[in-house]
């Protein structure tokens, strides 16, 4: 259940939290594009470090670090795969460029994780739902999205209660060979599914009782509005994007290489 922690929204208010989710999404996408555009170590490092003030402004450094930490395993795998492939293709030599390339690939991944986790940590799922709705997704889709987010902690809690109940009846999840272990999860999965179905029926009943789908065009009290700050952030973001494209096309980026020690 810890995997969700890095993505769970924390209700605080800050400059970043108050930005329109659509603007924040553009911001994350620009980071994404830039990370794809550059393969050099230097610009990627800059890209990662410019995000630090944002994290600081939003007061989510703890959660942000924990989501980076959980991406560590994947990052290591990316690094090693690139390293091995490079090592093999350069005739079994660990050259400095292989090492640099692997590092920048890993850095690119970490940058992406970092930017999207800022997005999720500072955007309330409610606002995200509204953003979906106002971007002309059907209301049902947006509603399903926010409801799913609302029930993640509830279901996680329920799963824990089921695990506790079955362990109390002597179930040992880590016992036996591979197949047996999969079977061990049946006593947990079945109640989880049965309860989820029961819960969804109850939810549907409650929704019906509150006139869900009564009118074709429902009112939206909390419609998102683009504010001055949003416009500013958008301009800055797009300027950076344009500037970066210029650099990419016309400027020679200084190469920083990681030196290797020849093993003989």
């Amino acid at each position: 259940m810890k995997a969700f922690e890095g993505l769970r929204f924390k209700r605080t208010s800050s400059f970043i939290h108050q930005l329109d989710p659509r603007v924040k999404f553009v911001l994350s996408c620009v980071v994404f594009i830039l990370a794809i555009m550059f393969t050099e170590l230097l610009p990627l490092t800059i890209l990662l470090s410019v995000q630090l003030p944002l994290v600081y402004l939003a007061h989510v450094h703890k959660e942000w670090l924990s989501s980076l930490r959980s991406s560590l395993i994947l990052a290591t795998m990316i690094f090693l795969t690139n390293l091995i492939v490079g090592y093999v293709s350069s005739e079994f030599q660990l050259t400095s460029s292989v090492l640099t390339y692997s590092s920048s690939m890993t850095l690119r991944f970490v940058t992406l994780v970092a930017s999207f986790s800022i997005f999720f940590l500072t955007t309330s799922p409610d606002d995200l739902g509204l953003a979906l709705e106002q971007s002309h997704f059907p209301y049902e889709f947006a509603f399903a999205f926010t409801t799913a987010v609302r029930f993640v902690p509830v279901l996680a809690n329920e799963a824990q209660m089921i695990i506790d109940a079955q362990k109390s009846r002597g179930l040992e999840l880590e016992k036996g060979n591979f197949l047996k272990r999969i079977r061990n999860y049946l006593p947990i999965l079945i109640p989880l599914i049965v309860n989820a179905i029961r819960r969804s029926l109850e939810l549907a009943e409650a929704m019906e009782s509150r006139a869900f789908g009564a009118k074709e065009h429902r009112t939206n009290l909390f419609a998102l509005k683009i504010k001055m700050n949003d416009v500013l952030v958008l301009i800055v973001t797009l300027t950076i994007l344009a500037f970066s494209i210029y650099i990419r096309l016309y400027v020679q980026i200084p190469i920083v290489e990681i030196p290797t020690f020849q093993i003989t």
């Binding site: 309330s124 799922p125 409610d126 509603f143 926010t146 409801t147 987010v149 609302r150 509830v154 819960r199 109850e202 939810l203 009943e205 409650a206 929704m207 009782s209 509150r210 006139a211 869900f212 789908g213 009564a214 009118k215 065009h217 429902r218 009112t219 939206n220 009290l221 909390f222």
Partner: peptide
């Protein structure tokens, strides 16, 4: 209609949004 299990009749992520849910549906 108020149901037995509070958890399964609240869908929104804030109390305010919960209360307006039905009213929004009625347009």
């Amino acid at each position: 209609f108020v149901f037995q299990n509070p958890e399964n009749q609240l869908f929104a992520l804030s109390v305010e949004r919960e209360i307006v849910f039905g009213l929004e549906n009625l347009a």
